[in-house]
Design a protein around this nucleic acid. Structure first.
Lengths: 116, 116
DNA sequence: GGCACACACTGTGTGGGACACAGTAATATG
DNA sequence: CATATTACTGTGTCCCACACAGTGTGTGCC
């Protein structure tokens, strides 16, 4: 039988990712109320305790832009071309809706968990 | 061009589901500190504001059991065979870890969102 | 001036899992 | 005896995060 603690830890990593998945969208939208490009956005999120892989963040940004929640612009800064993102009006509306939903989920979870 | 509000709403549904996805595991584990079978568990979660489709809940229960976080037992009650689930020791440990992670995510999100 | 390292983004493959939809079957209810 | 409720199972599809692997450009150091 494999090591039980190790199994738990692998499983925990997986569930933790699952838990963070949906929150990343909110975090990115919230952070992009101020303009950022991918790299600094990633650093900022890491700083805030929401580390995210490059291979996850960049596709996420493109996806959110294709969904109309972000707008972007190629621009040179410090002798480098960078893609600057910021939230769109649609994105702001969506972020508001998601915040409400987030609070509801929190209330539900607290109700469930405090009983134990 | 399709109706913009409708698009936002469809998109919101999708993002809302994404947001709830990871939380469902916590809700189910938390709720199953008391024994339930699928149907009443689903009713209880719906009552708490975390409605979940049958086709999502039942596979989730089987998955969590296969991961060792739940234990189950076929038993007759009210002239029906039902599969009763409850949390395992491993599941309790995992739930504790997830709660900590959940709090951390909440802190991070609050930091991001309050700034606006 | 060449070498390592940080910066900034792109591309592909894979696998997990929610959901829609459909089915099975037994027990109330009228 | 027909319909609704209870209770669970099965299949197919689609999305998306992640791992991994590139591509190319500054900057600092010796």
């Amino acid at each position: 039988m494999p090591n039980s603690i190790q199994m738990t830890d692998d499983l925990f990593d997986q569930l933790r990712l699952e838990l963070r998945r949906g929150c990343l969208v909110m975090a990115v939208l919230g952070q992009l109320r101020a303009e950022h490009y991918g790299y600094t956005l990633r650093l900022a999120l890491t700083d805030l305790g929401l580390a995210i892989d490059e291979g996850t963040l960049y596709p996420l940004l493109r996806r959110l832009e294709s969904q109309g929640l972000l707008v972007s612009e190629w621009r040179e800064e410090a002798k480098r071309d960078k893609r600057f993102y910021r939230i769109s009006a649609e994105g702001k509306r969506m972020l508001g809706l998601l915040c409400v939903e987030w609070e509801n989920i929190n209330k539900s979870l607290n109700k469930i968990l405090q009983k134990g």
